[in-house]
Simulated scan of single mutants.
Amino acid sequence: MEHPYMSEVDKELRRLLASGSPSLSPMIQHFLETKGKGVRPVLVLWCGDIAGSPMKRSIDLAVAAELLHMASLVHDDIVDQAAFRRKKPTIHRMWGEGAAVLVGDYFFGTLLRVISPYPMVVPHFAEAILSLVNGEFMQMDQQYDPWISEEEYLNRICQKTANFMSTCCKIGCLTQDTPFEIMDALTNYGYCIGMAYQLLDDLQDIIETSEGLGKPIMQDISRGIFTLPYLHSFWQESNRLPTFLKVNIVPSADSLEYTRKLAAHYIEKSVICLSSLPSTNGQRGLLCISRQIKKKLEQLQEVNAYAPTLD
């Protein structure tokens, strides 16, 4: 259920990023063709509707959320040395790492300009950025380490994904007139949907095809990043295998199902968060997001799973 303002968000995004630079313009245009479906700005817009935010404010903050997401993707692609994003070559692969860093910085600068008229949201964007960075460093610290606990893994994906989505919901409804109960429910909704979203992504990285996902699959394990399906299999087998074989665990059907059930649990919690809110277009829009993620999760059950080892 796409929000009716999304076309305005896209239009404003393109207007803000229009550049006369012959070097910068083609990079921006290339990236805009790979930026995805805009889940984060949609969260801002639906939560803005629930809070009764003015249209311009909601559009501006939705644009800002997308700019932060875009900046993080450009920089993440450099860190991950990703060659493709949504079937197109990444910025750093086409124009070099130096240019890609500058493009990400340009998105950050534009973000700051957009949110400057809204001082109330600035601390929340700052916290979201810090969380994204902390999540990346946490992932670096845990690289090639299959001994991390489920709690550590969940904290990592919270820092990398869920906190940002929670922030999108919070800034959307962050007005002086929004009751605390509504803001708290929407903030928690964003956290739950973010956790489910990342767990789904971890499953897709193993189960999906490159064509279906729009990017190379099995990227996490190829870089020594153990996601929950691998960790769960490792925990199950760790008492029965010699140490040198433990990192070669292939996710079992049980571990894939365990991850799927945990994602479904967070989706259910996201729906519960909305149950206390009146039935409005905004509430129904957020419920639709939960249903869409649930549908994708269910579709993965119909696909045969394959995962590589670290041989």
Rank of each mutant, 00 (worst) to 15 (best):
H3E: 11
E8Q: 15
K11D: 12
L13D: 06
L24V: 11
M27H: 01
L32N: 03
T34N: 11
K37D: 11
P54N: 13
K56N: 14
I59V: 15
I59K: 08
L61C: 02
E66A: 02
H69W: 08
H75E: 00
D77W: 02
F84W: 13
T90C: 09
M94W: 05
G98K: 14
A100W: 06
Y106K: 03
V122M: 15
F125E: 06
E127H: 09
I129K: 00
S131E: 05
Q139C: 10
M140E: 07
M140H: 06
D145Q: 15
D145Y: 10
I148W: 06
S149D: 04
E150R: 13
E152G: 05
E152L: 10
I157A: 06
A162N: 05
A162S: 14
N163H: 15
S166M: 07
T167S: 04
C169Q: 08
I171N: 01
L174I: 00
T175S: 13
T178Y: 03
T178G: 02
F180I: 09
A185D: 07
A196Y: 10
Q198L: 04
Q198G: 01
L203Y: 04
D205N: 14
I207A: 01
E208S: 15
E208D: 15
S210D: 15
E211I: 08
I217P: 05
M218K: 12
D220K: 03
S222A: 14
G224P: 07
L228N: 01
P229Q: 10
S233M: 05
F234S: 06
N239A: 14
L241F: 09
K246G: 01
V250E: 12
S252D: 08
E257I: 04
R260H: 10
Y266C: 07
V271K: 11
L277D: 09
T280V: 10
Q283R: 15
I289D: 08
I293Q: 05
K294E: 12
A307W: 05
P308Y: 02
L310A: 05
L310G: 02
